[in-house]
Design a protein around this nucleic acid. Structure first.
Lengths: 196, 196
DNA sequence: TCCTTTGCCATACGATCATATTGCGTCCTT
DNA sequence: AAGGACGCAATATGATCGTATGGCAAAGGA
């Protein structure tokens, strides 16, 4: 067998170029030519590692999910003994575009969401990930509120909305975090009130 | 002067065709050719009423804002004497994709939001409308909660998130409404508790 | 009645896209 | 060392895009 090249590494390299374009100029600006140029490759090379643009996008979104999982894991790491309420807070904060990396990820995520609206395959994948996320939050709300599943959906919806406002600059980071904190507090607080 | 044609009506007709395409196949599927075909016109005719695609999109988004305003007004009509809490509820419900017309409007709105992420002109327009909306909600929360402006932003963010979940089918209409109701209740209720 | 203005259409143009094709070094295997 | 598989590039192909252009029918003021 001839020259050995790490396919996975190449694919990842291409994917990062793709994310850069998607974050700065939108997913609609992503073309084979642009990606190749951003990755410093020829178009043919990109084609060599991804048979089609769809395959490339599919791979990129799968890696995005991996990255979110990593981010969430990192966020929870080292606070295993914290109160469940703080774990929920960490999870939700990790989903907000509060630093450059998270902003890129969020922008790409929005682009994927947008495409999913007219692509049932992507929509199914999106719903699946969403359900997992909802379950993860609900799990940590167990005992803190009367209806953890509903509370989790509400918190996730709020987080999504806050993320949109942050992306557009309608809210500042401080303000978004403050809103989220207040909400988490109210939800867990009121349940205590209800169950007393 | 020669033949008289209602320009505004033509433009509106074209705009509705554009919305149909944007709602069913995304804003990226909107092209002069597609719009012309959907409106049953020639490409040249569309060009005759909109000098460029950008001008067409600009008009379409402006009309979208008008339509939202109408919808909100309609929703508030006839309940002038209702409790402020119910007015807020009506406002927020009117922003959710709960019927076909609202779904189309929401889809187009998402498409506009998405484009605004990489288009500062559109972003500015979006933020402006958002601020107006936030003020309208906050105004009706006056006296019901400690910090009406923040509460309004929180409710709008939640509504946006719920709308996304509804579009993708992650939440049912009943569930989204229930979450929104609970949130409105908690916000006004808890403030009473805080201010007592 | 004629002529200018307008509504409208058909088509052309250049750019950009995804993708297919072709070719050439280069390295591993035998 | 020879040959085939692979990494990679250059270019061709056909589709689709926004927009420009030229022409024709009709209508209303002169």
């Amino acid at each position: 067998m001839p020259k050995k090249v790490d396919h996975e590494q190449r694919r990842e390299q291409i994917t990062e170029a793709l994310w850069g374009i998607a974050a700065s100029r939108g997913l609609e600006a992503v073309s084979m030519r642009e990606v190749a140029a951003a990755a410093g490759m020829s178009i043919g090379l990109v084609q060599h590692y991804f048979a089609s643009k769809d395959e490339m996008l599919l791979y990129a979104t799968a890696r995005l999910r991996d990255q979110l999982r990593e981010r969430l894991g990192r966020s929870l790491a080292g606070m295993g003994s914290a109160r469940p309420r703080d774990l929920v807070r960490a999870l939700l904060l990790a989903m907000l575009p509060l630093d450059a990396e998270a902003r890129t990820a969020t922008l790409v995520g929005v682009a994927v969401f947008f495409r999913a609206l007219n692509d049932e395959t992507m929509a199914a994948r999106y719903r699946e990930g969403r359900a997992l996320l909802s379950a993860a939050v609900a799990e940590r709300l167990e005992g803190l509120t009367a209806d953890p599943a509903t509370a989790a959906d509400a918190l996730l919806a709020l987080t999504d909305g806050l993320a949109s406002d942050l992306l557009l600059g309608h809210l500042t980071a401080d303000r978004a975090i403050s809103i989220l904190d207040r909400q988490i507090y109210q939800m867990t607080e009121s349940s205590v009130r209800l169950t007393e």
